[in-house]
Design a binder for these strands. Structure first.
Lengths: 205, 205
DNA sequence: TATTACATACAAACATGTATGTATGTAAAT
DNA sequence: ATTTACATACATACATGTTTGTATGTAATA
């Protein structure tokens, strides 16, 4: 039994998180035992319990590693006025998220676990509430961006930015769910970016 | 131990399904033991195993009781030409599903269990595949209905019926997910019908 | 030396599926 | 109409296994 440096301990911790992700993906969170995670990580259960209080904490760590960077990215894409028009900024925000899903297997798998492989009961219901709260933030940012588009005369039809933002949010929420469910990546994934473009074009004058 | 008539046995079976739904909703499918379902149903585990092979079969029964009628309803609303125009038929199909969710606690709870309280692993992955297959059928029916709307000159913009059908499907998929997640029914549920109307209006000339 | 980052051992609880027991329904024979 | 044989619809008991969390041990770091 070899004690480690702090850096080594952190590597062990990350290795445990990676292992959890692998096993959660196959077995689902509830049916995964801590022994299985330990085996996958090449440590013992004692090590897991040193780093994490329980399975839920492990799942939190897994989730935070992926979702926090995504949320940080959101403000950059939507609210920072650059050379692109507001509608293109919304499109870039949506397609950027799809690109991250395409590029990062970690992100992809974490989404899949959160959407299809865990049950929102007990202490985990709070996570659902957080997700809904994050959605409210996103909707607000999209609404603000649609307002900018309206001011610039870019919007078709006579719907309000709030209505458009809600419609877009529901569209994108559905897209994410269907994207994740397209496990073999043949039915929806190849078309996701085109669908986003279509969606934005539907509201462009 | 009193043996029952066939009719009584069927009542026992339905009572077990109802009990399972109640317990699954609170504890999640995986964390629910068959003993808990038995207690809730007022029978013993032996009775459950008489009627169902295992927990997965019980979950199938629960699901089928709700989803089969919904799927049957689909063709009626979309494909049967009545006095209403095709866009209104799409709107009625979408809002009709929301109305069923509002009116039937059983439907509502089953959706919640299927979306938030179970993990799609092992034998249950097949259910996910079935759901995706059902979605394809819905998309096709919506596309056909959008085509009818196009022939009648009701569509705004220059998108194809296939593109519109896909956008609508993703919107509605997102709406269902967010609707189900609005557990306290205060954030999205009161506005769902209006959002559907908005969505359809966005494509009406 | 004290603390850390683990590994190993212990204790307890729970859950599943199956075997067996039992009372009653049902159809057929008398 | 009564009796019998069988099947049914459960309840109870059995057998087995797994999993969790915690206590304790241990080598290395700080």
């Amino acid at each position: 039994m070899v004690r480690k440096t702090k850096e080594d301990a952190e590597l062990t911790r990350q290795r445990i998180i990676d292992a959890a992700r692998d096993v959660f993906l196959v077995r689902g969170v509830s049916r995964t035992s801590m022994e299985q995670v330990a085996t996958q990580a090449g440590v013992t259960r004692g090590a897991i319990y040193w780093h994490f209080n329980n399975k839920t904490d492990l799942l939190y760590a897994l989730r935070d590693r992926v979702f926090l960077p995504l949320i940080d990215r959101m403000d950059d894409t939507l609210l920072v006025e650059g050379s692109t028009d507001p509608l293109t900024r919304i499109e870039n925000f949506l397609s950027g998220t799809i690109k991250v899903l395409n590029d990062s297997i970690e992100t992809r798998q974490t989404y899949e676990i959160m959407m299809l492989k865990c049950e929102y009961v007990d202490e985990f219901e709070a996570v659902l509430r957080q997700m809904i709260s994050t959605c409210s933030g996103i909707i607000e940012n999209v609404r603000l961006t649609y307002e900018r588009a309206q001011v610039k005369g870019l919007l078709a039809g006579d719907l309000t930015p709030a209505e458009l933002a809600m419609d877009t949010h529901l569209f994108f929420s559905g897209l994410l769910h269907m994207w994740v469910k397209d496990i073999e990546g043949t039915q929806l994934r190849p078309h996701a970016l085109a669908m986003i473009k279509t969606h934005i074009n539907l509201r462009r004058k």
